[in-house]
């Protein structure tokens, strides 16, 4: 009987460890947060070229992560990329209309993310607005092409 009790305890501990492991994988490894995901607002931005930007990429402001890229789609009116951003609701009504969004790269070969920098206009961006002033990703081939044609002409 005693032996069976310790066995039950062991199995219970084993299953508990499994659940805790899954929680670890959720929180620490895949970065889920326990806070409700509703306190965000949505902005859109059109880019001529998004380079290697992916959904779930970071949106930063002065290097601080303030949101994520929710979706990327092709805008068939202008044939450019429409990027939908989800930002912390603290920033709602805090970003001016002439905020710029630029696609930046972490390191030489790192992941691409969006950097926002605030302008000075008195009107503020609200939920669902579009950022007008955008700067596309640097595409290495285009840079090289420019460099080579500059070299050739000089």
């Amino acid at each position: 009987m005693k032996r069976s009790k310790t066995m039950e305890f062991g199995v219970g501990l084993f299953m508990l460890a499994g659940i805790l492991g899954l929680v670890f994988l959720g929180l620490r490894v895949s970065g889920l947060s326990l806070s409700a995901p509703t306190d965000t607002f949505r902005l859109e931005a059109n880019f001529a070229n998004i380079g290697g930007l992916k959904p779930r990429a970071r949106v930063t402001m002065a290097g601080v992560t303030v949101g994520r890229v929710e979706a990327i789609e092709l805008d068939t009116d202008w044939y450019d990329a429409r990027v939908i951003l989800r930002l912390d609701s603290d920033l709602e009504g805090q970003l001016s209309q002439d905020t710029t969004a630029a696609i930046l790269t972490a390191g030489l070969l790192g992941e691409q993310y969006i950097g926002l920098s605030v302008g000075g206009a008195p009107e503020m961006l609200e939920d669902g607005d579009t950022i007008r002033d955008t700067q596309s990703a640097l595409v290495l081939e285009e840079l090289i092409q420019q460099f080579v044609s500059n070299m050739a002409s000089s």
């Binding site: 994988l25 959720g26 620490r28 490894v29 895949s30 970065g31 889920l32 779930r56 970071r58 992941e111």
Partner: peptide, 19 residues
């Protein structure tokens, strides 16, 4: 190490499919 992991691992697609 941790933030790159968190940015790229999706709970549904990676952990869920592994399970």
């Amino acid at each position: 190490y941790w933030s790159n992991m968190q940015a790229s691992v999706s709970f549904i697609n990676d952990v869920g499919n592994g399970m």
